[in-house]
């Protein structure tokens, strides 16, 4: 899934930064430092924006491109924060067969951002996920902890409307 560059401004705190610098310091010069540092950086910030990746790169003596190469390779990393409402569209095989692609398209259109990204106001983020294990309900989307199954594309606007109007 493409990790689209976030539109939400970076709001890191000095506490977060000093924690990250501490982690970098303790891994510096060691082999294979990049993965653990990035994992812990993501734990601190919830995602890996460019600002954080620059700190990691400068700290470990890597180029930003090398760091980004790792981040974009592994699906466990994300360069987008989560929105207030996280909309996940299951793209597992069962959902896919039952038309998840057109559900996703409707979700993206309604919310106004692509899968893997967040709206500029930070209220919604959209993910296209692997199988969430609710194959009996295919196709499925979740909004936060709410689950909606056996969807047809026309229902999408109505469901999301409940959250947009809140």
């Amino acid at each position: 899934m493409p990790n689209l560059k976030t539109k939400v401004p970076f709001k890191g705190t000095p506490e977060q930064e000093s924690k990250l610098l501490g982690i970098i310091e303790s891994h510096k010069g060691k082999r294979g430092a990049t993965m653990p540092v990035l994992q812990q950086a993501q734990d601190i910030y919830g995602y890996l924006p460019e600002e954080v990746q620059i700190t990691v790169a400068e700290g470990l003596g890597l180029s930003l491109s090398e760091v980004y190469g790792v981040v974009s390779f592994y699906s466990q990393f994300t360069v987008n924060p989560k929105g207030e409402h996280v909309v996940s569209v299951c793209m597992g095989t069962a959902c896919y067969v039952k038309g998840a692609a057109s559900i996703l398209e409707r979700v993206e259109r309604k919310i106004g951002c692509e899968a893997g990204s967040i709206t500029a106001d930070g209220r919604f983020s959209v993910d296209a996920t692997r199988c969430i294990g609710a194959c009996g309900l295919a196709p499925v989307i979740t909004v936060g902890s709410d689950v909606y199954g056996r969807l047809v594309p026309d229902e999408v606007d109505g469901i999301l409307g409940k959250y947009t109007d809140k």
Binding site: P2, L62, S63, S65, E66, S72, F73
Partner: peptide, 10 residues
Amino acid sequence: AVAVIGPNDR
């Protein structure tokens, strides 16, 4: 020594 390009995604 600058490594400004690399493989992205997978």
